[in-house]
Nucleic acid binder design. Sequence first.
DNA 1: AAAATATATTAAAACGTTTCGATATAATAT
DNA 2: ATATTATATCGAAACGTTTTAATATATTTT
Lengths: 316, 316
Amino acid sequence: MNNKGYVSPETSERIQNIINDLNYKPLHSARKLATRKTGNIGYIIWESHFSEVEMFYSQIFLGMEYAARESDYYILLTTVKDDFDPKTDLPRFLKYNDVDGVVLAGRVPHSLVEYLDKQRMPFVLVDYGIPGKIYNSVLIDNYNGAFSAVESLIQSGRKRIAFVGGTFSHPSIKERFRGYKEGLESYNLISDGHLKKYTYLEDAETSREIGEKGVSILLTEKLLPDAIFCCNDTTALGALTEIQRKKLKIPQDIAVVGFDDIPTAAFNLPKLSTVRVPKLLLGKEAFKLLNDVIDNPRLPAQTRLISTEFIKRESS
Amino acid sequence: MNNKGYVSPETSERIQNIINDLNYKPLHSARKLATRKTGNIGYIIWESHFSEVEMFYSQIFLGMEYAARESDYYILLTTVKDDFDPKTDLPRFLKYNDVDGVVLAGRVPHSLVEYLDKQRMPFVLVDYGIPGKIYNSVLIDNYNGAFSAVESLIQSGRKRIAFVGGTFSHPSIKERFRGYKEGLESYNLISDGHLKKYTYLEDAETSREIGEKGVSILLTEKLLPDAIFCCNDTTALGALTEIQRKKLKIPQDIAVVGFDDIPTAAFNLPKLSTVRVPKLLLGKEAFKLLNDVIDNPRLPAQTRLISTEFIKRESS
DNA sequence: AAAATATATTAAAACGTTTCGATATAATAT
DNA sequence: ATATTATATCGAAACGTTTTAATATATTTT
């Protein structure tokens, strides 16, 4: 049954038939007791990330769940509070040692990551990294995604491409800015003072509000930007709203491009051009990497980069 | 430790201290093996419901997860395909008997419900019901929610209130329509032919498209409706889009009201008036009811009704 | 022909709890 | 004084697997 030792195909089949006839299912709890594994994997996200409008992290979860179906693992989803303290707020499955490993998605309390590291609990970060630390992680190729988005804008004739974004404490956003900047540079579209004029950065969690505020400030420039690259779709949606409020035409007056390809992007009016992040794949890769780490805990930390795809819709 | 037998407070405390000193945590798998319980609860939704734009069913899950934290249960979330067949597509945790009970949220394959019923697996339906069958369920008070929404529209002077909705095979939508209709009736605002003229029903899963289509058809009437009550927020968002596309003013020309209060509703432009469904509470109640059912499987099936609250924002 | 390898069978210990029964004593009620 | 109830302690069986070792035979390789 467990594919161990010497078993001839004939015997194996004979046994399988008996298993089927009896409808025998091994009892998980007994098996776990004997193997001293839990058979569970934890999935942790910030509470606000899960409660939010977007389904981004839910989709990553779903990708993991799909992958888990081919395995014996169950996935336990939980959220941690914004003011997380490992002493008191540890998820139950960590407190009671009910998982063999953990996936952490998006921005996540550093104290939690350190706790896991200290406990030698296998874990993988998805779409997040902690500056100065190297952990097992699955990341989006933000740099090239942003680069290609900007490139597309340039190829459709845009000259003054602005950037609107949230906090750089999330490395994804920082990388997207870098892709934006170097994209412009490689086409020589970045004059002195460009970034000063056409960049709106706010040190806060990304939101519609940042998009709205960013646009309203950018639109005070003498020479209006003719395109805005936003650090993600949520921000871009806010940007669209504000541009429409100011009675400018999209994409004629200003083109807008987002990042992520959240479901709303395709349903918005106008439909949002964006950089598609394959969220299910992110989840799947995280699951696979975590399995590798669980099987081989002393492997040096590795990072797997997931590439993106530019989706041109109505807003650009 | 398990609060059984005679234990004096003194002894109990003494033991607790030792437990703390040793940082002893009972091993779940051993405990489960001995008790023949799994300690898990399954949460099942349609795949399309989870992948969708809205976080409706994710919020219900979160409500359950919060409630579960006070218990020893873990919740296993999984989705089932649209063309579900119990023979081949049974969720793993059912196939391998790894749950003590199941919560099913939203529209769900009848064959699955029948399977659970036949297996005598404790289960609870949330926001769904199967006509002619009585199962344990936690439902939204759709009737009164719709009634109060319509009432609010009437009180702000609307006379020709239309309804746009999706398939009645989801009882919630049917009930919302009933609340709408009886709301109008009780204010004598429903003339001959009113429903014929001012009702758009499409026998399909609710979507933005239904909202858009519904509005574009309603706007062909000689006497335009001055308000539209949509069967849910998603539909209402579509309706808003189409109304704006037709250059009508919201709420001046037409007021729009949705149902559910999904997060997007508050961020849309204009902000959507809607009937708030306490999604976390739905999840919590489902969890509590399921626990009751697990503890006492032969209790007659009961339904718990969760009431709603009308939220007036910009669109009405 | 001998050695190595592949296949097969069986028994026993171990995993860490719960449950049950036996035994005992102290405190309280009758 | 006796019976009942509350408290405390202990040992053993049971839950259903995995793991290991021991033993054996058949098949293949040297």
